[in-house]
Design a protein around this nucleic acid. Structure first.
Length: 282
DNA sequence: ATGTCACTTTACAAGTGA
């Protein structure tokens, strides 16, 4: 089973790139962050035509997360899942079944922001998250990021042990110095501070492992700023992560970053500032 | 700090968030 996580930075601005990505990798499941669109305006029809069913938790302008599942729903109408409602097993033609869809999590300090969607699929409980950015250390948003991660982590820790848990998404925290192009220069900057790394460790608790770092100690980035020619200079960070229960680690064949997606191409619209992470699981 | 991008608004530029 192939799972991809990608901060698309607007699904409407990048639909041709999304469709090309689906064709290139044929994932079973694709988790999107920063779709920046309401459920109503999500390009559900085009994705259904491409062979994917959309589970949506959107909002206008900011945030917005989605899980796309290979296969097609029996009924082809605009499907929106209200917050915090659990769904029974849903039939998806041809392929994967999913269940227990939920949007948000309990005790979220900003419950109106669409940042977390989850579903059980392919023998896993898959959680797709877009963590608060936090702006910088002096910002109120920085403290909110800490509180949000604490509440999110408490929810994750208390989820059932089965099926095994896989949490993917944009965590907006680079866990280690080898995830930062200039660890000395950026040590007090957003994404890289010791506070954020502590919050992430706490969120992971005893159960969630940083899957890529169990496989390699190489420098790997998933995000490069649009500014200053960040991508061409390879001045990036790794803060798009896949965190998994220990039972999952042995089942992961490969985890890598599709850096190609970050390259500007004449025939396509501008890339997202994030590259997708791809996880192949037995 | 800022060599960019996408979104919104009573919209044709400027503010916001990343």
């Amino acid at each position: 089973m192939r799972i991809i996580s990608w901060n698309i930075n607007s699904v409407r601005a990048r639909l041709p790139r999304l469709l090309a990505l689906l064709k290139r990798h044929r994932p079973d499941v694709l988790c999107l962050q920063e779709t920046k669109v309401t459920n109503q305006d999500f390009p559900e029809i085009q994705l259904s035509t491409a062979g994917y069913y959309s589970i949506l938790y959107g909002q206008t302008s900011y945030n917005g997360v989605a899980i796309l599942i290979r296969g097609q729903a029996k009924q082809h109408n605009l499907t929106t899942f209200p917050k915090n409602k659990l769904y029974a097993m849903t039939e998806v033609k041809n392929n994967l079944k999913f269940s227990e869809v939920s949007c948000g999590f309990p005790k979220n300090p900003v419950p109106d922001e669409a940042r977390v969607i989850s579903a059980c699929v392919g023998g896993l409980r898959l959680v797709n998250a877009y963590v608060i950015n936090g702006e910088d250390r002096t910002s109120d948003k920085f403290l909110l990021k800490g509180r949000w991660m604490e509440a999110f982590g408490n929810w994750l820790q208390n989820l059932p042990q089965t099926p095994p848990l896989l949490v993917v998404g944009d965590f907006n925290v680079a866990p280690y110095d080898c995830d930062v192009w200039d660890p000395k220069g950026l040590k007090d900057r957003i994404h890289c501070t010791p506070e954020e790394r502590t919050w992430l460790k706490k969120l992971q608790g005893q159960r969630l492992q940083d899957i890529l770092r169990t496989k390699t100690q190489e420098r790997v980035f998933t995000w490069w700023p649009y500014m200053r020619g960040g991508f061409n200079r390879d001045e990036g960070l790794r803060f798009d992560l896949a965190l998994g229960d220990k039972d999952i680690l042995n089942l992961v064949n490969r985890i890598w970053v599709d850096k190609e997606e970050r390259i500007p191409v004449e025939s396509l619209e501008a890339p997202s500032d994030h590259a997708p992470i791809i996880i192949d699981i037995n």
